[in-house]
């Protein structure tokens, strides 16, 4: 118990003294996850909206497939990206394995289906409301995609936040493709795993508190957006 309280006060010291090592890890985490969110958003939002407005054979299958990808185990994504990027793999010559870029690729793959699926749900609601009117105005389903994205902008933010939350919290994928190399690919989750097993609880605890704060912030923001959308019919 004494150990724990000591680790706890040490971890607070680390946070409030803006410890350089801690900061490096947090910043790399944010860089990797924000990059992945950016990529996944650019692909996922238009994809989700298009799946809501376009009618084509096999649409249900595509939607079901996309939804099932939402629950993809991060370690499996990590494994697949590892195989692609490893020296003997198809993209091995790029030399990306064990770099932050590899981690960005893995997290993008992991959260694009999440953002796309959630965006599709939001877009389907909006399209249900708009379809007759937009069709009447001569708006083709594909042309409706930017309209849906703009008019659903507040609600779609929650899809992006969900993707960000998932990216920052996952360990498996970045562990495998990043390799958890000190000063290179060590992010919050992988550091927590490593330092805990080494018994270095203060750093692990400090990172854990930051991670929880981040996750709570995301959830509160999501809640507030939902509330706002309901109240003002945005």
């Amino acid at each position: 118990m004494n150990d724990f309280s000591q680790a706890f006060s040490l971890s607070l010291d680390l946070i409030f003294s803006l410890d350089a090592r801690l900061a490096e890890i947090v910043l790399l985490s944010l860089r990797v996850s924000l990059s992945a969110v950016l990529i996944a958003t650019l692909i996922g939002l238009p994809l989700g909206a298009a799946l809501a407005t376009l009618r084509f054979p096999g649409r249900r299958t595509v939607n079901a497939f996309l939804s099932s990808l939402m629950g993809l185990p991060p370690v499996v994504v990590g494994l697949v990206v590892y195989l692609l990027l490893s020296r003997s793999g198809p993209m091995g010559s790029l030399g990306l394995l064990f770099t932050p870029t590899a981690m960005i690729i893995a997290q993008s793959l992991l959260i694009t289906p999440i953002i796309a699926s959630l965006a599709r749900q939001v877009s389907e609601d909006l399209w249900g409301e708009y379809r007759d009117q937009l069709t009447s105005l001569g708006c083709e389903p594909l042309r409706a995609v930017p309209t849906i994205l703009w008019d659903g902008r507040y609600r779609l933010t929650t899809a992006v936040l969900a993707g960000f939350g998932r990216a920052t919290a996952e360990v498996g994928a970045v562990m495998i493709v990043g390799g958890n190399i000190d000063h290179v690919t060590r992010v919050m989750t992988t550091t927590i795993a490593l330092e805990t097993s080494k018994g270095n609880l203060s750093l692990a605890l400090a990172l854990g508190m930051i991670l929880i704060t981040l996750s709570l912030t995301i959830n509160v923001a999501t809640f507030m957006i939902r509330d706002q959308v309901k109240g003002e019919s945005l």
């Binding site: 007759d132 009447s136 105005l137 001569g138 309209t147 008019d151």
Partner: peptide
């Protein structure tokens, strides 16, 4: 003909703008 007709619905559909 689609370009030369319009429709107003029972419940007005307003875009979010």
């Amino acid at each position: 003909p689609q370009r030369h007709q319009a429709m107003v619905f029972q419940r007005p559909v307003m875009l979010r703008r």
